[in-house]
Amino acid sequence: MEFKELQDFIYQKSGMFFPLSRKNYIEQKVIKRISFLHYSNFQDYMNVLKNELIRTEIINLFNEITVNETFFFRDLPQLEVLEKHVFPESIKSGKKVLNVLSAGCSSGEEAYTIAMILREKFPQMAYNILGMDISDLVVAKAFRAEYTDYAVRFVPKDLLKKYFSPLDNGSFKFHDHYKSNVKFQKLNLMELDNAPFSANFDLIFCRYVLIYFDRDSKQKVISSFYGKMANNSYLILGNSESLFSISNDFKMLHFPSAIIYNRK
């Protein structure tokens, strides 16, 4: 398999750059697609992708390679900073509605987690949460809002009881009632500039998404974020990601357990 060809193709179409060290990972995913489609070799498959012989195949490939295992209440220390600093500051500054973006939302765990925190701890604050992801498969999953017991393992007992109903197959469904202000949309982060949003965001989560991007693409995404953010808003990255050598537009705020970025 010609890895470079695939690497370039994925990069051009999505901005995600997979270094040579991720070769095995990508190859496994591609082999899965090839055998699913009953092709006999890589070149045939590449031909399908490049010439869009099956128009949806590129989406299927992206779905395959961006599958991320995520869960509710991931990175509690970061969520604590939301509770103790970000939300109180937003209230203090007179914001009545909080617009939140979960960028690279996967199957919606992060978006619903934020909804629960806001409802429980800041009932006076209205909110709109938008989750977006390049993969239509996970976006559909987020709409459906059914989760394994593994995904909800860190949800506090009382919240699990209040916000979810157990299903016969052992999974948990997030109540429709609490989904009203949480929306999902399929969107490529590289095309964020052209996306119409009704308001600027007060808070953007983009955790463990940019790890797939190279520096140029990271810079592009972060500058799109900047353009779509309200005054005195916040950006939260994964706890191993930083804006060093990506952007100087933000102010870094460090708390004992997490680092977040503030847009003045």
Binding site: P256, S257, I259
Partner: peptide, 8 residues
């Protein structure tokens, strides 16, 4: 210290 700083 912070996980991010350790990683960096």
């Amino acid at each position: 210290g912070n996980k991010l700083i350790q990683t960096m």
